[in-house]
């Protein structure tokens, strides 16, 4: 059974002049545990809206969204919040670390919304998570004193600290240079794989997209599957079965994978 399943989802918003603006058209998507999926699209193609829906922050106008077999649109706001807190981790382009809070406090934050053992042992859990992303020595550092790559690693630690089953990465390397971006992605791939979570990356960088097992393209609210695999990443199986993806994509050891790939049409995006 798939972890996340969108069936003919549409989303439309009502504009102030009472016209209806459709944003997503008939989107169907299935993501299984351990799978890495990328979605590329230009600005204005509906990526945010899709992210909202995938992250259980918004309900589709029509169509259904199942998370772990549960019909999310039937859940109350409160249960959706809880489901999201327990199962979804976000990594943002602008990191979105909380200002004035140390790295540790930032990673603690999602645990504040947990309960039981996870809540009462939160400091130890958060410390271990930061150690895993190689920031065990920067626990008390404020975001302002961390480099971009370190900030994104804190953000990854924060996204993964509750061991979510789905990671949503929204342009995770958009604010990083190429090399840092690649090392951050490698780290995220590794941890996501170790934890067996599904990773959905929204990006317009084809090199980042190439790290995924399956590729989608969002254009004017229409989601299409792309079977084309970048040449340089061809050694990775184009349609790897769920959960079998290599921990470290052999084709991209240090970010050399097709930064400009002539065969991928989305490279222009």
């Amino acid at each position: 059974m798939s972890l996340l399943h969108l069936e003919r989802v549409t989303r439309a918003v009502r504009l102030p002049d009472d016209t209806i603006l459709p944003i997503l058209h008939d989107v169907s998507l299935s993501v299984s545990s351990g799978e890495r999926v990328s979605i590329v699209g230009r600005s204005g193609s509906g990526k945010s809206t899709l992210l909202n829906i995938l992250g259980l922050l918004d309900n589709p106008t029509t169509g259904t969204l199942h998370f772990d077999g549960q019909d999310v649109s039937r859940l109350s706001q409160r249960r959706r919040d809880r489901l999201r807190g327990n199962n979804v981790g976000f990594v943002f382009q602008q990191f979105n670390l909380l200002e004035g809070r140390t790295a540790l406090e930032n990673v603690l934050m999602p645990l504040m919304y947990s309960h039981g053992r996870e809540f009462w042992r939160r400091t130890r859990i958060a410390t271990e998570m930061l150690e895993r992303v190689g920031l065990g020595h920067r626990l008390a550092s404020l975001p302002g004193s961390l480099s971009g790559g370190e900030q994104q690693r804190v953000a990854i630690a924060r996204a993964l600290v509750r061991r979510p089953r789905l990671i949503l990465a929204d342009e995770p390397t958009g604010a990083l240079d190429l090399e840092t971006g690649n090392s951050v992605m490698a780290l995220m791939d590794e941890i996501v794989h170790e934890d067996g979570a599904a990773l959905v990356t929204i990006t317009h960088d084809s090199a980042i997209a190439a790290r995924s097992d399956r590729h989608f393209r969002l254009d004017h609210g229409v989601l299409t599957s792309e079977t084309l695999v970048p040449v340089a990443a061809a050694s990775a199986l184009p349609a790897a079965p769920a959960g079998t993806a290599a921990p470290l994509n052999p084709a991209t050891p240090a970010g050399t994978a097709a930064p400009l790939n002539p065969t991928t049409p989305e490279a222009t995006a």
Binding site: L57, Q77, D81, R84, G89, Y113, S114
Partner: peptide
């Protein structure tokens, strides 16, 4: 607003 958005995305309910 940004901070509140981050908290919401990490599972903070509106009540919280």
């Amino acid at each position: 607003v940004r901070e509140i958005g981050v908290r919401r995305s990490f599972g903070a309910s509106t009540g919280r």
